[in-house]
């Protein structure tokens, strides 16, 4: 395929690896995606708009967006704390802490959901303390937020950690010698350099939270208009054999997550180019 190649390589196997990769990506990723797009395009605009602006759909948009935003906020703070402590200090249990951070990625989401709902139930290990001060967690939007923040916790930590490791201490020392308080050094010097990574991690966590299903449905209670997330509503429409409504709702999640994915990658490549000085 000489037309595609912009530079010749002595290594053989371009045609084989390129053709098979493209074939796989088409069959596994692009065909199903375009199938959904075709399915949605067969609906009239009025039909589509009707499904999207249905009060129950609007309520599920609201619940999903608010819970995902809350979860990403929690993760930005907790993730930054964990990344900071793991990279900056030496203490017993540091390696274990580092390894455990990935637990939410390794633990199946259904297991996370089952466990969190038992943990935060009114008589659960943690839920009883919240109940004592009058806060219900399980089967409320708060529970959805906790489930989402559990499954997306590693994103912020793993995005911030490498940047934090590469920060050179001389900038901080310079700030301190010039009379900056520790707080000012942290916000003006360290946080400023961490911002791109922190935002990337938080955006990834937000994207994951928007689409989270397994962990949420166990703890949410799934009451229409109150604790029903968008992915669940898609599944309910499917069970009713209303494929049109399910596809329309799914297209909204899909567009949102694709825009987020490409947006994050665009911003990231811009930033790395700026860092490299091009």
């Amino acid at each position: 395929m000489p037309l595609l190649r912009t530079q010749h390589s002595v290594l053989p196997g371009f045609t084989l690896s390129f053709a098979l990769s493209v074939l796989f990506i088409c069959l596994v990723i692009l065909v199903p995606l375009s199938g959904l797009a075709i399915h949605v395009s067969q609906m009239s605009w009025a039909q589509y708009w009707g499904v999207i602006t249905d009060p129950r759909s609007l309520a599920s948009f609201r619940v999903t967006l608010l819970a995902a935003a809350g979860a990403s906020g929690i993760n930005a703070v907790v993730g930054l704390l964990l990344a900071w402590v793991i990279t900056r200090y030496r203490f017993p249990g540091r390696r274990l802490m580092d390894a455990l951070v990935d637990l939410p990625f390794a633990l199946p989401t259904a297991v996370a959901g089952l466990t969190l709902s038992a943990l935060f139930a009114a008589n659960g290990w943690l839920g009883q303390w919240f109940e004592a001060v009058g806060i219900s967690v399980a089967y409320t939007p708060l529970g959805i937020m906790i489930a989402m923040s559990f499954t997306s916790l590693p994103f912020v930590v793993r995005a911030v950690q490498p940047v934090l490791e590469d920060l050179t201490p001389d900038v901080e020392e310079a700030a301190a010698t010039l009379g900056a308080t520790p707080m000012a050094t942290f916000t003006r010097v360290i946080l400023a350099q961490l911002m791109p990574a922190l935002l990337t991690g938080t955006a990834l966590a937000f994207t994951r939270s928007l689409g989270e299903y397994g962990a949420v449905i166990f703890i949410a209670g799934n009451m229409p208009f109150e604790t029903e997330i968008l992915s669940l509503l898609v599944n309910i429409r499917l069970d009713e054999f209303d494929y049109a409504a399910a596809s329309a709702l799914a297209s909204v999640i899909l567009i949102a997550s694709l825009v987020l994915l490409f947006g994050i990658q665009l911003v990231q490549s811009r930033l790395t180019r700026r860092w490299k000085g091009h």
């Binding site: 990506i25 199903p32 689409g211 992915s231 898609v234 499917l238 997550s257 994915l261």
Partner: peptide, 21 residues
């Protein structure tokens, strides 16, 4: 970039796409 799409997609939406096709 295309290979990252499954990471960003909601699993329920993925299932639905396959069901439709």
């Amino acid at each position: 970039t295309l290979i990252d799409i499954p990471f960003a997609m909601s699993p329920v939406v993925a299932g639905l796409c396959y069901l439709v096709v």
